Amino acid sequence: MIPACGADSACPSLWTCSDPVLQQGLEARIDALSFRPAVADKSLCVALVDITDPVDPRMASLNGNQMMYAASLPKIAILLGAFERISRGEMALDRDTRDTLTRMIRNSSNSAATEMLNRVGRSFLLNLLQSPRYRLYDPDYNGGIWVGKPYGKSPAWKRDPLCNLSHGATVLQVARFYYLLENGRLVSPELSREMKAILGKPAIHHKFVRGLESARRNAEIYRKSGTWKQFHADSAIVERDGRRYIAVALARSPEGGRWLSRLIVALDDLIFAYLPDRYSQAADAPSS
């Protein structure tokens, strides 16, 4: 069964939106960066979704359904859980709550994440991620976003059932999270806008942010990253010069952070080389 954009939505499933031209372009840029061996041994996973037209997304991916340890990236799930509680009147979006959520996302504070996880409820969050409405963790697609451990020294209370990860993700399920967010399908349109605002103005300037700040200074980025030992993750909605896209990458390498800084510039190039209504425009040749 293919997950739709949302249970109450008519927007398409990203699993049905794979675009062969964008896919060819992604593979060409991976080769130009010499990342093909990392893709082949599944130590690099990438998803790219052009959402310039949000009701007609165009997607490309490599190892899209590969579960990987994602460090702090799954804190986006805690953000969703908090806003679900807020929508039900079970939590107030007061200054303290907003500040804690902001520190959790922009500064990647582990203490803020654990505080919010405890307020949201562990079982509540995992049930929400697996719910028919969201299906952000779906065994039919090799899992997805999972938070089975506080962010700190406490042991895991429930690892994901497929890959035994405490904090896991697949790039396509993370891309779905951002696609739902952009379409106002996370909780409600109003609260989706609140979540997106919290994802803006990142305070940690590495990986995707470093790459874009160096090469694309006018890019607006709404983002959550993660780092633990050799595991590096980044995910974002990027808006620049009238184009909008989702980029997600998971890497397992000591060089992973540098990979992602280079990768995001190549993905940005690809989005701007690729014109959906003009397939004669080549998207498979890396820009100089």
Rank of each mutant, 00 (worst) to 15 (best):
230 Q>S: 15
15 W>C: 06
126 L>G: 04
239 E>S: 14
1 M>L: 11
51 I>N: 03
105 I>H: 04
172 L>C: 15
94 D>E: 08
54 P>F: 05
222 Y>E: 07
232 H>F: 10
65 N>A: 13
160 D>L: 02
79 L>R: 04
174 V>A: 04
186 L>Y: 00
46 V>K: 10
260 L>A: 08
154 S>E: 15
9 S>D: 07
228 W>K: 11
43 S>I: 03
147 V>L: 06
178 Y>D: 09
197 A>N: 12
11 C>V: 05
150 P>D: 12
228 W>C: 13
241 D>K: 07
261 S>P: 08
31 D>I: 08
147 V>I: 12
248 V>I: 13
52 T>Q: 06
186 L>T: 00
82 A>P: 09
100 T>K: 13
21 V>E: 11
100 T>H: 13
194 E>C: 09
239 E>H: 05
124 F>I: 00
38 A>P: 00
276 P>H: 12
159 R>N: 12
202 P>E: 10
162 L>S: 02
177 F>D: 01
103 R>G: 10
100 T>R: 15
190 E>Q: 13
223 R>M: 07
182 E>K: 10
137 Y>H: 14
187 V>G: 01
269 D>T: 04
207 K>Q: 11
144 G>Q: 00
8 D>T: 10
209 V>N: 09
49 V>K: 00
97 T>R: 08
277 D>K: 03
165 L>V: 03
134 Y>E: 04
157 W>A: 03
152 G>E: 08
265 V>A: 11
5 C>R: 10
111 S>W: 08
133 R>Q: 14
100 T>L: 14
237 I>Q: 04
212 L>T: 07
18 S>G: 12
93 L>G: 06
73 L>G: 13
71 A>G: 04
219 A>T: 10
57 P>N: 06
151 Y>P: 02
240 R>M: 15
167 H>V: 05
256 G>Y: 04
276 P>G: 09
32 A>F: 03
149 K>M: 12
158 K>N: 10
146 W>L: 02
240 R>E: 15
34 S>L: 10
12 P>I: 01
40 A>C: 10
111 S>E: 13
106 R>W: 07
230 Q>V: 15
286 P>S: 03
264 I>K: 05
